[in-house]
Design a protein around this nucleic acid. Structure first.
Lengths: 243, 243
DNA sequence: CGAGCCCTTGAAACTCGTCAATGATCGTGG
DNA sequence: CCACGATCATTGACGAGTTTCAAGGGCTCG
């Protein structure tokens, strides 16, 4: 079952032909190993990348050598639709874990957005991405490191649930501590301490890439997490019936 | 001369009729005093607001009472085009200074986006807004407070230049220090100290809302500022000829 | 004239970053 | 096969950046 479908059905009332067009996109996936740049800052991508399996991210490097992760790209996410309108990328897209990726050609994208419901779903999805970015800014700007980390873990839980990659508070989190540090803007050392604080409070466990949120209510509380910005609608909640 | 035009001509090759349609929008502006919410989080705006004069912002409040400013809205900026697609706002839009604002009705927006070049220009403009948001995340996540402040001031210089509200490094900055603190995620006290550090280095002066960047090269250097993400193209640089 | 807001400054406390060292795991090549 | 280097997680000590608390001065406005 295709994560693109799972994601987009939450944003628009796709009909059978829409679904089959989307399913056809995933014909020839490519396996990409971890830590590979898919599209680099300054480039103009000729194709659109979609993640089918694994974790990828957007990031930017600073002159001082720091890396800021700007977004996580999880199965079902389109990486570079903006590259279609603007000349070149203002950031880099890279895999964090091994990934299964499809590259969609320009023609296919044009065919996609010619279908009104799919265009609507992609449009909504882009707006949710922007809302996530705003929430990250609040997160990094206003909260202490422990709350920042907790917030990111809460958000991932809900995003992965949409594409059915979460099971009762548990999901695969194939990241290094440095990756997490670069997303919440702390040093790797401090991230480690904050992580252990969450473990000591019995809020999470994390071993062998398996993250388990053992107390979601409490984790959401310490992080000030409110899922509203993710716009998880009825369609997503009952996506088993919608499909 | 209309700031909407100044801004959009940089993104698309608008013809005479496009320009006149855009100019007609600004017929009945409204004066709004400082610190007034234009659209609140959770609401679904029925109209689209455009700033013609003054400074506004997007912001979110946290449970702990903190405010994070997510974007500055300056003359020519559309405040809530996304409200058209999604049900409700994930953040609040408010004036920071007294503003001249126009409210565009749904019908007029539909008429606007029916014109391909205007739709393209609005689309590009939204993508630049997203790029600015990403750069802010890098700014807050990776740089120390002094560089963060310097970066914001550099960005504003260039954005205001596009709409001809900057003159040889000087522009009107009608914000309080608290506003700046809430944009770079520091306390107001620390912002004050960092501000004075920039003044002591003779990089800026700021008095009676008049900000002067006395050494742009140096200010850009200390903040790691690179204007690339703003996508200021040829059309903007020679906008006096384009109009 | 007083109230309120903004800017400014000092001192103390705290969060967080840097430096340094250790152990664990893992893939690679000798 | 084992040694080696590389990457990652962990911990301690120290210092820098930043917050909080507190107080005072300048300004506007009622």
């Amino acid at each position: 079952m295709n994560p693109i479908l799972r994601k987009l059905v939450g944003h628009a009332d796709l009909d059978a032909e829409d679904l089959s067009v989307l399913a056809d996109l995933c014909e020839n996936p490519r396996i990409v190993e971890a830590r590979v740049d898919l599209v680099r800052e300054g480039q103009r991508p000729g194709t659109v990348h979609v993640i089918l399996e694994g974790f990828a991210c957007r990031y930017k490097l600073t002159a001082e050598g720091g890396r800021q992760i700007l977004a996580y790209l999880i199965p079902g996410d389109f990486c570079d639709l903006h590259g279609f309108v603007l000349e070149n990328m203002d950031h880099t897209v890279a895999t964090l874990s091994p990934c299964k990726v499809v590259e969609i050609q320009r023609d296919s994208i044009v065919a996609l957005v010619a279908r009104p419901k799919i265009a609507m779903a992609l449009w909504c999805s882009a707006l949710v991405d922007a809302a996530i970015l705003r929430e990250w800014l609040v997160n990094i700007g206003q909260r202490p490191a422990e709350a920042r980390l907790a917030h990111v873990l809460c958000e991932l839980l809900l995003r992965l649930r949409i594409v059915k990659l979460e099971d009762r508070g548990a999901y695969t989190l194939p990241l290094s501590q440095r990756d997490l540090a670069d997303t919440i803007g702390t040093s790797a050392v401090h991230l480690n301490r904050v992580l252990q604080s969450l473990r000591r409070q019995n809020l999470i466990t994390w071993k062998d890439d398996q993250l388990v949120i053992t107390n979601m209510a409490r984790l959401a509380e310490v992080s000030g997490f409110n899922s509203h910005y993710l716009r998880i609608g009825k369609a997503h909640q009952n996506s088993e019936r919608a499909l």
